[in-house]
Design a protein around this nucleic acid. Structure first.
Lengths: 195, 195
DNA sequence: CGAAGTGATGGGACTTGGTCTCATCAACCG
DNA sequence: CGGTTGATGAGACCAAGTCCCATCACTTCG
């Protein structure tokens, strides 16, 4: 076998994601057992854990892809640009993953996550991972440590704000994120000194 | 009983914290069972979970106190001050909790957390909680949403940087944090525009 | 001084997340 | 047709976390 898609029953992973989202929506995250998710997807607990490392992960798939895009977005920004411009490149780079289907499921997913501490932890961790990765990519370009940390963190703020707006209004995520980052930049620039 | 301290064997909570830190240090977090922590503290699993809501929490105690201090620090900053000045007030307010004993255990605690994903998740969540709380306290003072988010997030960056330095050099945390926040502010102000 | 009450603890049953190992079964390959 | 591979099923097993109830030290009140 080599065609990369000729599975058995296709889409086991997708079926698990859909089943999980439905069940979390219907009964809540904590009242849903992994075995139940697997059952609804026509699979078993064993198979679930072969596709996802834990119960939470079914809601946070595709992180690796985003990390890769973020790094490429920063590394691929032409050189005389500043740190924030590179961060903008990162946000634009991940826009390709913001599909219409993802936007449709976005609110449901957000609601499930917001309602549960475990899931909010995982979400915080995911965002922290994005920040760390961007920070490292910035340092790779010669950006000083502290500037990299600040730029990456502001990028995360813009990502959150942009994501919320994109869920509301739709359209091209790249544009929405660009605007959000510009607003964040202005807000940061105009902060009064602590002295 | 009313003196607030006349327990049975005193310091059950402290004993659990110490036992946990020792065991995590010796064998690693994942190789240590809660029952084992309790045993070394001369207690049982039941009692452990009466003091801490889960296995991680033994490393993250005192968060409620910090949250309270952060809020008071922001709310208590005299009014004509800007958002970042209020954040500085928050960082200064929590300085009272940075004792010499805490500094002694800090590196060990950091090492344990850094070595484990679960613990890094909890840490990320804790920081996100600090950020949210500061953001809300800022909005309470009339700071616009986005400015509050940016100021709070920069405060978190300064908190991390300041904490690392304080572990190294010691001294008054308030001073260290103040300097870190000022550096962060300058870094944020000097970021080149994304356009 | 003894009885009832209170708060922290011990003990153990129970559910579920997560790991591990082994058997199975469909597809592919020679 | 027989062997290999890769995904799955099945079930044992451990530890985290919840619950419920008994216990024991200490206090308070009669």
């Amino acid at each position: 076998m080599m065609c990369g898609m000729g599975r058995w029953e296709p889409d086991a992973r997708d079926r698990l994601v859909r089943a999980a989202l439905d069940l979390f929506d219907e009964q809540g995250y904590e009242n849903t057992a992994v075995a139940q998710i697997a059952e609804r997807a026509g699979l078993t607990k064993s198979t679930y854990f072969r596709h996802f490392k834990d119960k939470r992960e079914v809601l946070f798939g595709g992180q690796d892809e985003l990390v890769e895009l973020l790094v490429k977005g920063i590394a691929g920004t032409p050189e005389p640009a500043g740190a924030l411009k590179a961060v903008e490149g990162a946000l634009v780079a991940i826009a390709v993953t913001f599909s219409e289907e993802r936007r449709a499921n976005g609110p449901r997913r957000l609601a499930v996550i917001a309602a549960n501490d475990e899931l909010r932890e995982r979400d915080a961790m995911k965002m922290a991972g994005f920040s760390t990765v961007m920070q490292e990519a910035l340092r790779q370009r010669g950006v000083p440590e502290l500037d990299a940390a600040v730029a990456a963190e502001l990028g995360i703020v813009a990502l959150r704000v942009g994501y919320d707006r994109w869920l509301e209004v739709g359209g091209d995520f790249a544009e929405v994120a660009r605007r959000a980052l510009e607003e964040v930049r202005l807000a940061a620039r105009d902060l009064e000194g602590a002295e």
